[in-house]
Nucleic acid binder design. Structure first.
Lengths: 351, 351
DNA sequence: AAATTTCTGATTTACGTACATCAAAAATTC
DNA sequence: GAATTTTTGATGTACGTAAATCAGAAATTT
């Protein structure tokens, strides 16, 4: 059997209480004794039984996820994953809650962050917009000793403890690279649809896309659809009308509904389309061939990663960064995972 | 606080012992009483505290992984992931061990399975070859009440409890589809390198590949390299020499080392190459452009899924199949995850 | 109605850790 | 060397569940 605190006490020649003091960093232990105990811990290869420890302390960690409201399918997917994780949360001694705020609204976001600070939660995860007052709110959380992770879109130099999301520059590069290969020698310009250049992840994707595009290929000025279906629809429709020889479209934002509507209205011809986030809409578009590839960040992975990081920070434990890196998935119609119908079961920390 | 067994006993108006009998399906409870208790469980929304339960029973689950030996990098990666998972295993009350057997050797595999049955392990996960005596051995494990999962390559109708791995037909289709798009209108035939047509996963990938290839594109007869670097090298070298207009190569097996050696000897020109399994070799080849895409099944996910499934089976719990589906990852040089150097930390059930 | 079987209750111990209390010992200060 | 402070020991309770025992109640059989 694996060693317990009792074994440590015995081999170190001290009492259980002293071992406990060393293990939990409580005061009242002489340096020499502490060293003895630590030596015993190492020699026995003791590892704390987290299950028993959690059971004993029966502490709960209230965590808050702050997400943009609206019908952005990816955000709703994130929310669903939080709720899904919430089903398991009692077992992990966490209590999850979701607060939604208007999209691209720094003021509302700040209010939600401050409310969470008031409630004295154990951690905050938020999809943030890039604004100085948001950075200030994050700093307040930090000052209050509340761990903060940014989700999906980062805000460096804000004092956030961690970023959970994909490398968006690499995502843009991947899109550009795939687009280049899919198009081959076929002539024609490429259009880019974004939500807003005011969020960092969209800017980064655009940068990566440009970097990966062959210089011989024209990239039209970016269209900002505010992640709004109607606006995206008209922007793309106009663009298609104005550029009859258009070869491809890259949608790096969430306006997939409008994009797909415009595409199906036009009839596809031979347009190469790459979009982000695997949702019911993009999945269907992949299957019908309206869209050629979808880049995805797994919402479930992100939520679980955020929870692990916040818990680790709350416990003062280190974060294993390699383990928390979120992969960028490429989907084409042939490697689509099972549909949402078969996928209703709660996910696990596992997969 | 969440309800406990005590709360159930109180609301159901029975004793703790009776609740325990119902919860753990022990005999000696009348149908009426059982119904009362179950009603209380539902109404209170009770969920067993797994941590406390595991702590109390302090049962350990010895699990055996049977893998092919040799320098197949993917198999060695699997083995590494098992060892990695083993670091966490005490916390999950499992004890993992690895047995290696000669590749493509049904007799040795059967011996290893029978040895595990003799040791009375709680579960077996194995990369199996397609042979009737293997099916018989799996049936013996089943008869002994030992859960069995097939890893990477399935063996249906063998009585295995579960298959952990990707859909290999879809994997072949994905390769074919990508190859078709990358090649575009470029003329030339396509070669396929496999390990052996005697393992099911290779046959399935080949089928999928053929199905996804445009009929206008010639696919040369499959080359069987036995996953051996030298044989693969000479097969590919000969093929390249004999087919100067070759447009692409699909390696659906593990002979990447030989393939890459042959490719770099030749100098790439404009060959489209798609391979399986992200290893140090294929990663380097992606980065240098020798290989265009790599299809991957995440070894860490597979190992953790196998462990979860075996534990669930050992406890008589249902398997949430949607959660245990292994995704097929597509990697191009732009979405490569962080390298193995930065990735040495133990993985988690999480990601 | 007695004898038997089947069910249920009450109680106890254990799992490994956290945490608190109080007494005793050792080290330090004056 | 006495007084004080710091360090250590001994002990107990708690977390939520598992599992065992034994006594008593209820149901069933004869």
């Amino acid at each position: 059997m694996r060693p317990t605190v009792h074994d440590i006490a015995e081999t170190a020649g001290v009492s259980l209480a002293t071992v406990d003091r060393v293990l939990n960093d409580r005061p009242g232990v002489r340096g020499v004794t502490k060293a003895k105990v630590e030596a015993a811990i190492v020699s026995l290869g003791y590892v704390r039984d987290v299950a028993a420890a959690n059971l004993a302390k029966s502490r709960v960690y209230p965590l808050v996820f702050i997400l943009p409201e609206g019908d952005n399918p990816f955000m709703r997917g994130l929310e669903a994953e939080v709720r899904r994780a919430g089903l398991h949360s009692p077992a992990e001694r966490t209590r999850l809650s979701v607060a939604t705020v208007p999209a691209f609204d720094a003021g509302a976001l700040v209010k939600a962050i401050d409310a969470a600070i008031m409630e004295d939660v154990s951690g905050i995860a938020a999809v943030v917009v890039d604004a100085p007052e948001v950075s200030a709110a994050i700093a307040r959380a930090h000052a209050a000793g509340i761990p903060f992770v940014t989700l999906v879109s980062d805000l460096a130099n804000s004092g956030r403890d961690h970023f959970v999301g994909v490398d968006n520059i690499a995502a843009g590069r991947t899109a550009g690279s795939l687009m280049g290969r899919f198009l081959g020698e076929r002539p024609g310009a490429v259009a880019v649809l974004a939500g807003s250049m005011r969020v960092r992840d969209h800017r980064e994707r655009l940068d990566g896309f440009h970097a990966a595009m062959p210089v011989t290929r024209t990239v039209l000025p970016v269209l900002e659809g505010q992640d709004d279906p109607d606006l995206s629809f008209s922007l793309i429709s106009d663009c298609l009308a104005a550029n009859p020889t258009l070869a491809g479209i890259y949608n790096l934002g969430a306006g997939n509904r409008g994009l797909i509507k415009a595409l199906s209205a036009r009839g596809r011809a031979d347009l190469c389309v790459i979009a982000h986030e695997l949702t019911a809409e993009t999945r269907a578009a992949l299957e019908t061939g309206l869209v050629d590839a979808v880049l995805n960040q797994d919402a479930g992975h992100e939520v679980r990663s955020a929870i692990r990081v916040l818990r680790a920070k709350a416990d003062g434990l280190p974060v294993i960064s390699a383990q928390e890196r979120i992969r960028l998935d490429i989907f084409i119609k042939d490697n689509l995972p099972a549909g949402p119908d078969e996928d209703e079961q709660p996910g696990a920390a596992g997969n």
